[in-house]
Simulated scan of single mutants.
Amino acid sequence: MKKETIHLRHKIVNDTYYYIYKNLEHQITLDELAKLNKVSKYHYHRIIKEETSFTLFEIITSIRLQKAANLLLTNNHSTISEIASLCGYMSHSSFIKAFKQRFKHTPTAWRKGAFKSYSKQLLEKFPTSKDFSNIEPQIKVCKAIKCTYIRHKGYDKKIKNTWEKLYAIAYENNITNFKQIALHHDNPTITPLEDCSYVAAISIDKDYKNLNILEIPESLNAVFELKGVYGDVLNFIRYVYHYWLPNSGYETSSIPCYTIYEKNHFTTGFEDFNLKLYLPIKIAF
Rank of each mutant, 00 (worst) to 15 (best):
M1V: 13
M1I: 13
K2D: 14
I6R: 11
I6Q: 10
H7E: 11
R9M: 08
K11E: 13
I12F: 01
N14K: 05
D15R: 00
Y17K: 01
Y19I: 02
Y19K: 00
I20K: 00
I20M: 03
K22H: 04
N23G: 02
E25V: 03
L33C: 11
L33W: 04
K35N: 11
L36S: 11
Y42G: 08
I47L: 08
E50M: 14
S53A: 13
S53H: 14
I63K: 00
R64F: 11
L65I: 05
Q66A: 11
Q66Y: 07
K67I: 03
S81F: 09
S81R: 09
A84L: 10
S91N: 10
H92I: 05
F95L: 09
F95A: 04
Q101G: 10
T106Q: 05
T106E: 07
P107D: 11
P107K: 00
T108A: 12
G113A: 09
G113E: 12
A114T: 06
Y118K: 08
S119P: 04
K120W: 09
L122E: 05
S129W: 06
S133T: 11
N134P: 02
I135A: 06
I135F: 07
P137S: 06
P137N: 07
I139V: 15
K143E: 14
I145D: 01
T148P: 02
T148Y: 00
K153A: 13
Y155P: 01
Y167S: 10
E172D: 14
N173T: 06
I175T: 00
N177C: 09
F178L: 05
I181Q: 00
L183A: 02
D186S: 05
D186A: 02
P188D: 09
I190W: 01
T191L: 12
C196S: 11
D207R: 00
I216L: 12
P217K: 06
E218M: 11
L220G: 06
N221C: 15
F224G: 01
V233Q: 01
R238L: 01
Y239S: 02
Y241D: 04
Y243C: 14
L245K: 01
Y250P: 01
T252E: 10
S254V: 14
Y258G: 01
I260G: 10
Y261C: 07
E262V: 12
T267D: 03
F270I: 08
F270V: 06
F270A: 12
K276A: 09
L277V: 12
